[in-house]
């Protein structure tokens, strides 16, 4: 449980505060700075939505609804994904997802999981919107678009995804597109009107993390670097394949704006503390990226000064 940690979600007034550079190198000044700085991760804008937490979590595969509810709470997420499925009309049992969640505190992001062509994805997106309108949830304005290529790899069909994205944008949806890590597909989705491109780190549920970090880096560059036709505030959310907290951190260090995951929490041996770990990992990666990492060097660079050494140095 994460009861002892402060929430990741931040009040809007403090949300945009960036860590400032220490002004003095004096030890006391630094200490004071650390104590007073607000290290809240700012909210993320995606279309007309403001995500208080940059960790978006799924609601599938949990042992039971109580475990899911506790894990969602520990993750700090304020956006959750759900799927659209047939009502079980003739063998009713158990509590529904809708009864188990504090829907007034969460924004639901309905997906089109299980669709293998654009037409089906558009149908499912409209059904999801209808359900969220009935619930009065703000999630009625958006959809997580998935058009899959096949059931074996669960990798996205880029052509079907682009086609469905354009159709849904025309129908008034804000479309968050699950995509492969191919940078050009990502650009095409952005050009088709996607509110966010969500590249897979690796196949859904595979737990292999970010399989091709260079592809993700190029994708982020094309979508976010103004010098290459991008827009710095265009949201890129790494979705799928995340297995460990370090995968989340890496995604954020590479410059992603957020991470969407489900199995990495739901199928952990102990999902609730794993949800907490994912939340901390996202914070670590966010600040790691903002702070600017050091350049990679092949050889060593001493942290302690050479001047004043009085012992034998080989070769000198």
């Amino acid at each position: 449980m994460s009861d002892t940690t402060p929430p990741t979600s931040v009040a809007p007034e403090s949300g945009h505060q960036q860590p400032s550079q220490p002004k003095s190198r004096g030890a006391n000044a630094c200490l004071e700075n650390i104590q007073t700085q607000n290290f809240s991760v700012p909210p993320l804008r995606v279309g007309s939505f403001l995500l208080q937490s940059r960790l978006v979590v799924g609601t599938g595969k949990y042992k039971d609804v109580d475990q899911m509810r506790q894990a969602l709470q520990a993750s700090g997420a304020d956006v959750i994904t759900v799927a659209v499925r047939r009502e079980r009309l003739f063998d009713k049992d158990g509590r529904s997802l809708l009864d188990a969640l504090p829907l007034d505190q969460l924004t639901i992001l309905p997906n089109t999981a299980g669709c293998f062509n654009a037409a089906d994805a558009v149908r499912v997106a409209r059904l999801g919107r209808e359900l969220l309108q009935q619930l009065g949830n703000p999630g009625q304005r958006w959809v997580k678009l998935e058009v899959l290529g096949d059931k074996t790899t669960l990798l996205p069909d880029p052509i079907g995804t682009i086609e469905a994205c354009a159709e849904l944008v025309k129908d008034g949806f804000e479309v968050l597109c699950y995509s492969s890590d191919d940078p050009i597909t990502a650009v095409r989705l952005r050009d088709a009107g996607a509110s966010s491109v969500m590249p897979a780190g690796s196949p859904i549920g595979s737990g292999r993390g970010i399989a091709n970090r260079e592809a993700i880096m190029i994708l982020i560059d094309l979508l976010k670097n103004p010098a290459h036709g991008g827009r710095a505030d265009y949201p890129v959310i790494v979705d799928a394949g995340v297995g460990t907290p370090s995968d989340v951190t890496l995604a954020m260090e590479l410059g992603a704006d957020g991470v969407l995951l489900n199995t990495g929490i739901a199928h952990a041996v102990d999902p609730v503390p794993m949800a907490h770990a994912m939340r901390l990992a996202l914070e670590a990666g966010y600040f790691g990226c903002k702070s600017g990492r050091i350049a990679r060097k092949l050889l060593g660079t001493a942290s302690s000064p050479w001047s004043g050494t009085f012992t034998h140095i080989p070769g000198e």
């Binding site: 609601t59 659209v84 499925r85 059904l127 359900l131």
Partner: peptide, 10 residues
């Protein structure tokens, strides 16, 4: 006729 609802998903 299809009657659908929301279920857990990722």
């Amino acid at each position: 006729v299809e009657l659908v609802t929301l279920v857990g998903g990722g």
